[in-house]
Design a protein around this nucleic acid. Sequence first.
DNA 1: GTCTATATCCGGATAGAC
DNA 2: GTCTATCCGGATATAGAC
Lengths: 212, 212
Amino acid sequence: MPKSPVELLPRRRSLRLGRDTREEILNAAEELLQRRGYNAFSYHHIAVRLGIRNAAIHYHFPAKEDLGVALIRRYRERFDEWRQSMAGLADAWDKLQAYFKTYRDYLQDQCKCCPGGVLGTEFDAIPQVMRDEARQLMREIYEWLIATLEQGRAQGTLCFKGRAEDEAVVLGSTLQGALQIARLAGPERFHQALDQLALELTGRVPERQAAA
Amino acid sequence: MPKSPVELLPRRRSLRLGRDTREEILNAAEELLQRRGYNAFSYHHIAVRLGIRNAAIHYHFPAKEDLGVALIRRYRERFDEWRQSMAGLADAWDKLQAYFKTYRDYLQDQCKCCPGGVLGTEFDAIPQVMRDEARQLMREIYEWLIATLEQGRAQGTLCFKGRAEDEAVVLGSTLQGALQIARLAGPERFHQALDQLALELTGRVPERQAAA
DNA sequence: GTCTATATCCGGATAGAC
DNA sequence: GTCTATCCGGATATAGAC
């Protein structure tokens, strides 16, 4: 008698807390990456948080760089989905504000850095495969920023001098840098930077939205 | 017979290459910090570069955090001296361009990050004494930026909307973030960001200066 | 001041039982 | 899939000779 379809499915793992361990590892690693950097977190940190053992993590991610690459891939996929979900918005300024919000959320959530900031800073101290992946992520964000800025200027909802390519770098750099500065000088600095960006791009400062 | 004045001077150490070892350690550590981050460099890295042994570094800096603090103190002293040397410049835009140049030099010199970017990123993973010192450094730079922006607007050499406090954060964040982005997306990105800042602050883009 | 030698600990990684 | 046990290398740090 052939096996039933159910038996052919991947075996249901003895799931702790009813969640997927691999995902939980990624979630914990993501927070550690954005708070401590790649070289300052260990499998042990993750293991303690999840109440599992070191070796269990190695089962899911044989080497640490595998975990690192998986993290960046997930950022890329997430950004791609987010970008698609935003494509419907007619107003480029609305899109940009939604993008700002993801950074505001980082700030609110334990004053985390953004992935680009961490990986850029540690660039000389991360494995080559992670560098390649990080470059891809940065390129995808950059292209979206340029397109959005161009759209906004064309429709009259955004205003800036010079080329969209250049303004995009300023925008990305400011968000990234301001998160780091907020850790040294307080969260208010980040909000000041965002207000100033809004002022320059639209001529006015919107009400400050609370993060989710 | 009393000791001669010469004998009372600190004993001349057997100097390798005719330089001061402590300074050389700081120089090597500084480059490692800005390229790899605090947690990704070791005494061994420094020892190899200087052709000395691990233990020799511990003689000058008993614990790694002592080295870290000394590094940031040196940044602070250097910035203070630089600030004083710039005080004579009448034009605030000239001062700002001189400040930009220090970042351009970081870029040219092995694509280094700036100290604030590194310490902000690793903030949760550095010793408390280093955090305190890093906060001081950031505050001193911030205050200088604000004063310079206000001076520039008053004399008409700089132009920006809103408050100088807010524009100062944008300026600092952009420089810091753009150095990191340059590592991921190429040095041209950094120059684009600087051109855009100049365009917004003065209405035109100056010739691109080569770094020293 | 710098060396050799060593202590100690930690992080990444693997083997094999369950 | 997760565990225990273990190996290995690297990093901080100290003791004591020169």
